[in-house]
Design a protein around this nucleic acid. Structure first.
Lengths: 192, 192
DNA sequence: CACATTTCTTAACTTAAGTGAACGAATTAT
DNA sequence: ATAATTCGTTCACTTAAGTTAAGAAATGTG
């Protein structure tokens, strides 16, 4: 299980056995059941998440309606906004599958960082990589129609369409569930 | 002129006179006329931009049409994707006003970073700050209608609506210029 | 297993955005 | 200064998304 994490980290930095042991001793691996809510609106938290297995989801509740804006699957990380801003969270995070996560408090980050400056380097690389990806995704979203966004997702993340409920996918695509249903029917019609 | 940059940097790190002189000696200040194209699709570049005065704009050309996805004004920074990916640029960048920019090649960054580790710290802070902001913006975009996005922009960046041409604003909001015109007329009608 | 709840789809209708075209206003170029 | 673009708005029409409602399918629970 830990190996998934270490293999991932190996892409950025090299780790000694000793360093790996320090990480293991932190006891940061968590097995969570589908539906578990990790973060709620209004809550303050310092927890960062890294998905080893499963899927977590970020969503807002606006006018009583859930609006899903992101999914995080294997090898993806989420640092909730409230962690960096030190403000109450604007959104919720839950598990939409049984999942195994690394849950690391910011204080652990500080501790590990002070022992191993490598960590800082890795975090910076990750943050820059994520920012670049995020900007491209946003640009694509802005410049395409709901239908194009759906087809694009079908190309890039076909797994998401399989494992995620339609109504959550819909708001992820910026539309209503009924529109997603219709849009899919339209696409099937076009193919023939 | 340089003071604008130093005051901005002072929010993140403290600078000695010596360090300031090193920065000035790099000769990174550029005065550019409205319309100047800084980066073209297909081009490789290592230049980062920081706006001291004026406004620059990022846009794609898709099916012969310009699609504007971002504006950068006073004290905002743009690191084009091609800089970090080392690939040809997917988009264009130009000045939409007479502007004064800091244009810094990545090699300068490396040089400065090695002399002053502070810089690295500032860059990391900036990148994390930007990522957080970007994620919130994307979430807001996904969860709101074109009209709400326009009203939201009117609140948060009223200056942009004044200084930016309507057809560029339209694609920034994810719609066509005609739709923006109509939407504005609709809002004016509602007020009374 | 049966019941309750949630989720997905379909349909009819409403509202808003996309499209193509026209026209005056504003800006830019000569 | 005048001509030439480019830009912003309006209009009529088309297409697609939002809304409300209903029913079928899937999922979860006692």
């Amino acid at each position: 299980m830990q190996d998934i994490l270490f293999n991932f980290m190996a892409k950025y930095i090299s780790l000694t056995e000793e360093e790996k042991n320090v990480i293991i001793s932190l006891d940061i691996f968590r097995s969570l059941k589908k539906g578990t809510v990790l973060l709620k609106e209004g809550q303050k938290s310092q927890d960062n998440y890294f998905v080893l297995k499963g899927c977590i989801r970020k969503y807002y509740i606006i006018d009583g309606e859930e609006k899903t804006t992101a999914f995080y699957t294997e090898l993806e990380a989420l640092t909730p906004h409230c962690v960096t801003s030190n403000m109450p969270s604007e959104y919720y995070v839950n598990c939409i599958e049984d999942s195994i996560l690394v849950v690391a408090d910011s204080s652990m980050g500080v501790e590990v960082n002070s022992k191993f400056p490598k960590f800082d380097i890795m975090c910076r690389m990750l943050s820059e990589e994520l920012l670049a990806k995020q900007q491209i995704d946003f640009d694509e979203f802005k410049t395409s129609s709901p239908e194009q966004r759906y087809l694009n997702l079908l190309q890039k993340r076909p797994d998401l369409i399989q494992r995620v409920p339609q109504h959550q996918l819909a708001s992820y695509l910026g539309i209503k569930p009924q529109s997603l249903s219709r849009l899919r029917a339209r696409i099937v019609g076009k193919k023939s």
